[in-house]
Simulated assay, not measured.
Amino acid sequence: MNTNVFDGPQQDIPAVLMNRDRRVAKQSQLLRENPNQVLVAAKLNIPGPFKTSPLIRRFFEAGLHRLEDQWLVTG
């Protein structure tokens, strides 16, 4: 297993900003289309130019699964 957190593609600032704008647009669309629903956005704030890697993805997915499990327990 590769344990290097920053073993992924580099992102420059324009790409990071474009991804943010795309995420905001999608969230806005979802809220318009589903005005009576709650939108939960999960993301990681990763410093530096390496925003994703296999290890970061696994960490995110583990946290997301934990959140979903908690919703099932309390729902």
Rank of each mutant, 00 (worst) to 15 (best):
P49A: 02
P47I: 11
G63C: 07
P35Q: 04
N2G: 05
V24Y: 08
P49Y: 00
I56R: 00
N2W: 07
F50C: 04
L31W: 01
W71E: 02
Q29D: 14
N45V: 13
T3E: 14
A25D: 14
I46M: 08
N2R: 05
L44V: 01
P35F: 01
A15R: 15
H65K: 11
K43V: 01
M1F: 09
A62I: 02
I46K: 03
I13N: 08
G63A: 04
Q70H: 12
D7Y: 10
L44E: 04
P14M: 03
K43I: 00
L44F: 11
S28Y: 04
A15S: 15
G8E: 04
D21L: 13
F6D: 14
R58H: 06
G48T: 10
R32H: 12
A15K: 14
L17S: 06
R57A: 06
R66D: 10
P54E: 01
L55V: 09
R22F: 09
V5D: 11
T3C: 09
R32S: 15
Q11R: 12
F60P: 02
I13F: 11
L31P: 06
Q37D: 15
G48K: 02
M18N: 14
I13Y: 11
V5W: 12
G75C: 05
A15I: 10
V24S: 08
I56M: 09
I56A: 00
L64S: 12
T74R: 13
Q10C: 09
V73A: 09
S53Y: 00
L72D: 10
R58Q: 06
P35T: 04
T3K: 10
A42M: 15
P14S: 03
E33S: 15
L67G: 11
P14F: 01
P47V: 13
R23A: 15
E33A: 14
L44W: 01
L64Q: 11
R58T: 05
E33L: 15
V5I: 12
V5G: 08
A62V: 06
D12M: 10
I13W: 07
P35A: 12
F6H: 14
P49S: 09
Q70A: 12
V24L: 14
V38I: 14
A25T: 14
P49T: 05
V38P: 01
E68W: 04
R57K: 03
Q11Y: 14
L64P: 04
N36D: 12
Q27D: 11
L17K: 12
L67H: 15
L39W: 03
L44Q: 05
K26F: 12
P35L: 07
V40R: 11
Q37L: 10
Q10H: 04
Q27V: 07
A42F: 08
N19D: 15
A41Y: 12
P49C: 01
F6Q: 04
R22Y: 08
H65L: 11
S28M: 10
Q27H: 04
H65A: 07
N19Q: 15
M1R: 07
D7K: 02
N4L: 09
F50N: 00
F50I: 12
D69Y: 03
L44H: 04
W71A: 05
V16F: 08
P49R: 06
E61Q: 09
E68S: 08
R58V: 05
N2A: 07
V5Q: 11
P35N: 07
M18S: 14
S28D: 15
L55Y: 01
G8T: 08
Q37P: 01
A15Q: 15
P54G: 03
